[in-house]
Design a protein around this nucleic acid. Sequence first.
DNA 1: AGCATAAGTGCAGTTCCTGCAAATATGCAG
DNA 2: CTGCATATTTGCAGGAACTGCACTTATGCT
Lengths: 217, 217
Amino acid sequence: MSIQHLGATTSSDSLRNRKRAATRLSIRRAAIELGLEHGYEHVTVDMICSASKISPRTFFNYFGSKEGVYASPNRAMPSEQRRRTFVESNNSGVFDDLFTLIADSLVEVDSNLELFQARRQLIHETPELLHKEKSRISELEETYVGYVLERYRFQGRNNAKTPDLADEAHLVVALVSGAMRFAMQKWVADNFSTTPEELVRNTSALVHRIASNEHWP
Amino acid sequence: MSIQHLGATTSSDSLRNRKRAATRLSIRRAAIELGLEHGYEHVTVDMICSASKISPRTFFNYFGSKEGVYASPNRAMPSEQRRRTFVESNNSGVFDDLFTLIADSLVEVDSNLELFQARRQLIHETPELLHKEKSRISELEETYVGYVLERYRFQGRNNAKTPDLADEAHLVVALVSGAMRFAMQKWVADNFSTTPEELVRNTSALVHRIASNEHWP
DNA sequence: AGCATAAGTGCAGTTCCTGCAAATATGCAG
DNA sequence: CTGCATATTTGCAGGAACTGCACTTATGCT
């Protein structure tokens, strides 16, 4: 087995990989189209399969479950670059910085904008899928807790001075997640008309207003 | 059909109703016991049925789904009394008041404490059930948004002065939900050792600390 | 062209869940 | 106590999601 060989089979645009990607896309396209037409619960995987001309077994090889075909195809993880910026930033509060970080990583839009929006709409009108999407996001929460802790440590805070530092980090992430859910919901409700930047700005402003109405120190 | 008759059949402790409640309880007991023993995904409804000596069809008559048997049996809606107090209160900020309101309504413990804790533990160690529980809670969010808006109006705020008042209410609820998820997670992690009051106090204190570290007005 | 590997398929079987109709239990009237 | 209306439980047939396994087909080298 030569180096050539290795290079060829692992290259991301071999015939095989391109074909795989194309099949994957056509299945998702069919699934979303059928979903918007008949509603999620009235679409069977057999329908998706005949529409995209594959066997049910292949469908499950690709997506693992019926819901899987409607899941976000993004990794949604911030780049190392962004992570460092967040950890070492001191410009603004954790809340705003983390909110922006997550927003940026969510907004790396699908290659296909049309499909992306169709998918969003379907998810929006299907509570079951909406819940799944939410839990997918919250699975990353532990990662973000780690980032926040790194940032705290970078600022010189530690467990000796603040015994419940981990709790504080968890709560920050939980609060930001709440704000994020609000923002995303508003985004789909507005039919994606606002830019992510505006959205972030508006939400931040609202948070500030709420905070200033509390009797907090 | 006499009034006597009507009174008897609708009374909540007729033989029928008591029997129903007993069956319901015994099914749940069996399901949770099996869940803790084998893990949620390795429990089939047939197993639950033979353990509680009913037919599968009856199981679905009672709970509608396998997950249903593990769902919280509480309504988790605040009483009218509490609602009014929240709407008309002016002591503290919305955030703290809403957080307390929701916490109180969640904590009306099950009649059977042992079963309640067993259920909590099982949910805690079963991501799928945990997510379901979360979405069940978030279905009440619209109700809470209504409460917050009522409170705003009671304080003399309205859409004329604040066009995005509804957005503000939604965001408040989203933020409180985040804090609530944190608190509940901590509660199960601590094995229910802290009292709900402590939990609320600790979480509030953390929120205040976080807020004071932000550069908010 | 031949061959190793990857991708796709067929099929049998499990589990969750539903509709429908039949069997059974309950509680009241007479 | 007996019968009757109503509530509860059950059996059965079947649909849909999903998995494991063995088998065929396609791909990309040499």
